[in-house]
């Protein structure tokens, strides 16, 4: 290869490489399906761990999820009170607080709400981690609150009929009812010592989350209408504790731009030398 051909080849090759880099760099952006997520903002002050009405909640972006009457497995229920659930979350790098807010015309002792997470790496079916036939699933961790106890219960399940409270109760919860609305705050540390029982929350990582709500009102015979599997449910959505701000992208971009500039500079200088020679 003579120098001239080599030069041509190099320019083309260099250009192609740069173009490939530029094109592939853009390829990561495409998202196939829009998913809705709860994003727990990172805060520096104190978390409103047991205050559903704290002003701090105003800074948390709400996510709204539609709820269905549970008709996936028996016992079914064809109508439920709660149609939509508004969820906010905050964390401080150590603890997480999740606020559920929903309209319920009556305050009843049996009103209840729950949050569900997958536990571990395996996917779990949203209905209590019931077994899947072709895929090995994992368990779920459920954070449960009931009006009359007004505290958090930390539960575990892998399939129907397996629901049981943890030995280690790590979850706190507190609800307050006002103006036809429940506001219930759940809190826990992001990580626990029991990764095979508890959902672990790592800032920056998306995990699955689902919800359930029971309106504890009674029928004329004095029976609670929404109880057990007869409840309002959601399917899996996403949840993420937001990571601390990361500016490395700007640094990388700066380095790349400087390199590209240097490349141009050297190229032009060398070309000028060639011309004057």
């Amino acid at each position: 290869m003579n120098p001239e051909m080599l030069t041509k080849w190099l320019i083309r090759w260099g250009g192609t490489a740069a173009m490939i880099a530029v094109l592939t760099a853009g390829a990561g952006d495409g998202v196939a399906q829009e998913s809705v997520a709860v994003r727990a903002a990172l805060v520096t002050g104190t978390l409103p761990l047991d205050d559903p009405n704290a002003a701090a909640w105003n800074n948390a972006a709400p996510a709204v999820f539609p709820m269905s009457p549970q008709v996936h497995w028996p016992e079914r229920i064809q109508q439920v009170t709660v149609q939509d659930l508004t969820v906010r979350a905050l964390h401080d790098g150590t603890q997480i607080a999740v606020l559920l807010e929903y309209a319920d015309p009556t305050e009843d002792p049996d009103d209840a709400a729950a949050i569900e997470f997958m536990v571990g790496d395996k996917k779990a079916h949203f209905a209590h981690g019931q077994p899947m036939l072709l895929v090995e699933g994992g368990p779920v961790n459920i954070w449960y609150w009931k009006s009359k106890d007004n505290k958090g219960v930390d539960l575990w399940a892998k399939g129907f009929g397996t629901l049981r409270p943890h030995e280690h109760q790590d979850v706190k919860a507190k609800g307050e009812y006002a103006n036809g609305k429940w506001r219930v705050v759940f809190s826990r540390s992001l990580a626990t010592d029991h990764p095979d029982e508890d959902a672990q929350i790592t800032p920056g990582q998306f995990i699955n989350i689902a919800f359930a709500v029971w309106d504890g009102r009674k029928d004329d015979a004095g029976q609670v209408i929404e109880k057990g599997s007869q409840k309002a449910v959601s399917s899996w959505w996403y949840f993420r504790a937001e990571p601390p701000p990361d500016y490395s992208g700007y640094v990388y971009a700066g380095v790349a731009a400087v390199l590209a500039l240097g490349f141009q500079f050297v190229l032009i200088r060398k070309l000028k030398e060639g011309q004057s020679a």
């Binding site: 760099a25 490395s248 971009a253």
Partner: peptide
Amino acid sequence: VGWQTYNAT
């Protein structure tokens, strides 16, 4: 080049 690098990283 800088912009694409930013997007990629």
